[in-house]
């Protein structure tokens, strides 16, 4: 995507989240934050640092350790005129709020005949490769994406973080916004102007001719690195960032696969019933006759994340794995 004509600045993902929330809170006083230690510490990974001083305890609200009510009370507030941005520290804690997500947030609007708006953003983070063990280390966007009624977004780059955050906060639907601990410190050019990226639109991050890699979050960065390496060997890799997991932009992804005839999907969810499987199924349906090889999936083998570095490294997908997968198709 060309940034040439626009004024940009170099920023880290973590600072983009902070700045974007700041701008949206300033723009619309119905936007407020609630979560555990969002005030004081600035949320997990200190991402929200400084917003507490600027907006005070009314709009940067520390909750008790009560995920059911952190999510559920935000839903109620969203149904009645506020625009909450909730933080769930680690995505594994979404499990505690299970009913609110599955039966309330996702179904309320539809069950009520489509008659109410629910401008609710639930921020959480995927974590892999931090030796944080099974309950604190997993990616769960596929789990939520399996629930009709939830829109699920994965942020990956400084640029998409700003566009997707703004779109999510301005949306009148509940949005699950998955960040990734592995990209918080990644930097890149971010347009200074106000902009949104449409929920449900993918982006081609790097153009290529020989093979398509569809990748999210930390794996997007690995995929770009793999593309760079293989480019030096004369293999031209196109890298697609889905940005939204549900609804998925099958059109953009399939168009790329049709063009290159080869497709690898990489994501930090477990392989079975993971995001990769959905994308692979969609690509196969849409582009079957233009594919030279079956769609390849890379992800976490179906085990919880083990603690020990030697075990966790075994199950992680890294740049070399992506390079190898591409080479098997060449």
């Amino acid at each position: 995507m060309s940034l040439a004509s626009r004024e940009t600045e170099e920023m880290a993902v973590r600072d983009v989240i902070n700045q974007t929330l700041d701008e949206e809170m300033e723009r619309d006083e119905r936007v407020y934050i609630q979560g555990i230690d969002v005030h004081g510490r600035g949320g997990t990974s200190n991402i929200l640092k400084g917003l507490d001083e600027k907006y005070g305890r009314e709009r940067v609200r520390n909750t008790p350790i009560s995920e059911v009510s952190i999510v559920g009370s935000a839903l109620g507030a969203a149904a009645t005129g506020m625009r909450p941005v909730v933080e769930i520290m680690y995505c594994g804690f979404l499990g505690v709020a299970g009913d609110q997500l599955l039966n309330q947030v996702a179904k309320m609007r539809y069950m009520f005949g489509g008659k109410l708006d629910l401008p609710l953003v639930i921020r959480t983070k995927n974590v892999m490769g931090a030796n944080a063990a099974a309950q604190h280390s997993q990616a769960l966007h596929h789990w939520l994406a399996a629930i009709p009624g939830l829109k699920v977004v994965c942020t990956s780059t400084p640029e998409d973080t700003k566009g997707l955050f703004k779109a999510a906060i301005r949306s009148n639907d509940p949005i699950m916004l998955f960040e990734h601990g592995g990209v918080y410190n990644k930097t890149g050019q971010v347009p200074v102007e106000d902009y949104t990226f449409e929920i449900g639109e993918a982006a081609v991050e790097r153009e290529g001719e020989d093979v398509t890699v569809v990748a999210t979050q930390a794996q997007l960065w690995n995929a770009l690195e793999a593309a760079e390496q293989l480019g030096e060997e004369g293999i031209s890799v196109e890298v697609v960032n889905p940005r939204t997991i549900s609804p998925l932009d099958t059109e953009t992804i399939a168009a790329s696969a049709r063009k290159t005839g080869r497709c690898v999907v990489v994501d930090d969810t477990p392989l079975s019933y993971g995001t990769q499987s959905q994308i692979a199924a969609d690509v196969s349906e849409e582009a079957f006759f233009d594919l030279d090889f079956p769609v390849q999936r890379l992800g976490i083998p179906d085990v919880p994340t083990p603690f020990s570095p030697s075990l966790e490294n075994e199950i992680l997908v890294d740049t070399d794995d992506i390079v190898d997968a591409i080479l098997t198709l060449a």
Binding site: N131, A133, Q135, F307, L311
Partner: peptide, 8 residues
């Protein structure tokens, strides 16, 4: 066996 760590 290294699966859990400090928290488990």
């Amino acid at each position: 066996n290294g699966k859990g760590g400090s928290m488990h």
